[in-house]
Design a binder for these strands. Structure first.
Length: 332
DNA sequence: CATCGACCCTGCGGGC
DNA sequence: TGCCCGCAGGGTCGAT
């Protein structure tokens, strides 16, 4: 369940079902599922076995579960088709079951199911979060001091999901992220998301606004669906050059992104089919509320003009040709 | 350094 | 029926 709301739905499910439980066994059924884990499947299994899982965390589309007292976390990225499911241990294996964790209490197990295998699991070291506001860093880290106090609207209830769990005494209270997530920018619901930094990064670039929204090193959590929805709400065309955006326009698209992702989260995310489900296998309902994505030739909810579909970055972009008029000097 | 296309996979629905 | 094509919400990597 690729984008931020769907991953947050999964995180909340895991928080409810696996926090505080101790791993009895870990199994890997397809090596590609742990291809990014240094050391291979055997080492992945060794690092999980016997460990106690703490509160699941998330940044953008990345999800991780700090392991108590190890300085490491189990990291998951769902890719295009990954699912994290809880189920009875004696349940038959799903067709695309790639890995499984069972627990010492004998209760529900945790399964990673992934049809296309673009997703992955790994055990990764936790490192200080370089994006943390300076005020939160106790020992004078590398965070940009200009981030502190930046105007921001922490909508939704996901703002506390970015802290690492098991900081050592010297780093007490300092936010941590897995090493593999260190290059990923905060998502727009995080305390550490700095709107001014985002604006300046956009102005420095020479690219289109949609490409920038999908660039997880600038802003994380936004994917193809919510990028189209946010741009439709903000009345900006996907090809609009980032170099000419005003603060007001960037504010509009950020507010739209938060609003649309927040609304999606409230109804369990967007599910077109059974590929995108929560940890109990249930679908979300936000597909009924989409105003642009997937609505080719249907009337725009604002002006009635048929929604158009363009191919961009080898994927679909949906927009209203009237509400989101093509820029005169579009970026690539 | 910034940017962009190729590539990684499986399955589904539509056209022929 | 079967085959082929386009399409699917992801990120990484190498070439430029």
């Amino acid at each position: 369940m690729p984008e931020l709301p769907e991953v947050e739905v999964v995180r909340r499910g895991l928080e409810n079902w696996i926090t505080g439980r101790t791993v009895e066994t870990a199994e890997v059924f397809h090596p590609r599922a742990v291809r990014r884990h240094q050391g291979g499947p055997g080492d992945f299994i060794d690092r999980l076995t016997g460990r106690t899982l703490t509160m699941p965390r998330r940044r953008g589309k990345y999800l991780w579960i700090p392991l108590a007292e190890t300085g490491e976390a189990m990291l998951a990225h769902l890719g295009m088709s990954g699912q994290l499911l809880v189920g009875e241990p004696d349940q038959p294996h799903e067709k695309h079951l790639r890995a499984r964790v069972t627990f010492a209490d004998g209760g529900l197990d945790l399964r990673f199911v992934d049809q296309r295998t673009f997703g992955h699991l790994m055990v990764d070291a936790l490192v200080p979060d370089a994006f943390a506001p300076a005020a939160l860093v106790l020992d004078g880290g590398t965070a940009d001091a200009s981030d502190a106090g930046t105007d921001r609207t922490p909508a939704g209830s996901t703002a506390d999901t970015h802290n690492g769990g098991t900081a050592g005494a010297a780093d007490a209270g300092r936010p941590q992220v897995p090493l593999s997530v260190a290059h990923i920018a905060p998502d727009p619901f995080e305390e550490s998301f700095a709107e001014e930094r985002f604006f300046r990064a956009l102005r420095r670039r020479d690219t289109g606004i949609k490409r920038a929204l999908l660039d997880q090193s600038l802003i994380s959590g936004v994917g193809n669906i919510y990028a189209d929805e946010a741009l439709w709400r903000a009345r900006l065309p996907w090809a609009r050059s980032t170099g000419t955006l005003t603060r007001a326009e960037v504010g509009r698209v950020l507010a739209a992104a938060r609003a649309v992702m927040g609304a999606a989260l409230e109804v369990g995310g967007t599910s077109f089919d059974s590929l995108y489900v929560n940890v109990n296998g249930e679908s979300g309902y936000f597909d009924r509320s989409l105003q642009a994505y997937g609505r080719r030739d249907e009337p725009c909810a604002r002006c009635g003009t048929p929604i158009r579909r363009d191919v961009f970055m080898n994927r679909s972009s949906y927009s209203c040709p009237k509400c989101q008029p093509k820029p005169r000097h579009p970026a690539r």
